[in-house]
Amino acid sequence: MSAEFQERIEAGIKIEPKDEMPEGYRNTLIRQISQHAHSEIVGQLPEGNWITRAPTLKRKAILLAKVQDEAGHGLYLYAAVETLGVTREQTIQDLLSGKAKYSSIFNYPTLTWADIGAIGWLVDGAAIINQIPICRCSYGPYARAMVRICKEETFHQRQGFEIMLTLARGTPEQKAMAQDALNRWWWPSLMMHGPPDADSKHSAQSMAWKIKLFSNDELRQKFVDQIAPQADFLGLKIPDPDLKWNPERGHYDFGPIDWNEFYSVIQGNGPCNRERLQARIDAHRQGAWVRDAAAAYAAKQRAKARVA
């Protein structure tokens, strides 16, 4: 099957749920899509942290709608995993047991309102750069879910930038708040594109399967090139003394990333790993009786319908 499968991939024919596919391809997709789904769901938490404290009613409405969008993204992506034969319940269990991973960025805390701006601008921004190519990936359901998701992420990024702009043009305290948020979120955002190409263990095969279309380092460069001029526009300083436009390359150069921090956070040592996972475990556990009740009620209704 492998050669024939690879030919289909090369020809740009989308793979659909009922098509035959190599186990490795299926497992890679399950791992990647479920990780992505969990990131959307865990990603609700740091931003949800500021919903009840949003500074104006309009900002509150925008933030509520944004965090709701992220839940919706989780929903589409869990559905995409189901097309590969793994139920939502099973996928969620893997998150709660600590077996499955989610994006490490959500293990950092949101300390001020500016963090909500920085997340929209940088984190949704980095996510868009990673995800736009996935709209063209070889697996149909994933590609289609991503088209919808990317549209919404684009709004999120614009709204985040707008928060930063308002702060950057606000009082000295607000500007300092924006700069502090950029200082804290910058490096973790660069890590969102994954480890450097030299150390990326899944990349080559994923690229051959067209699950991945650009390398981690290429995506990171795109992100830096996009954000650096935006930071200038905001009058904020990216916390990297080596960041500089390189006219020969036609790209920004930037300084070395602390990959030890990245691996340490993935291992569970970020500031919020334990709280984030615990929040999901609590929600799941406290919701159990509600889910049981809904199932019991539905079963009673079905039984009544049979009798009638």
Partner: peptide, 19 residues
């Protein structure tokens, strides 16, 4: 209600309550 956002008993309810 917004205190529930991200903590609902099931994803669909999280979304509906937020609505």
């Amino acid at each position: 209600l917004s205190e529930w956002c991200g903590h609902g008993p099931v994803l669909e309810e999280d979304i509906a309550l937020t609505n």
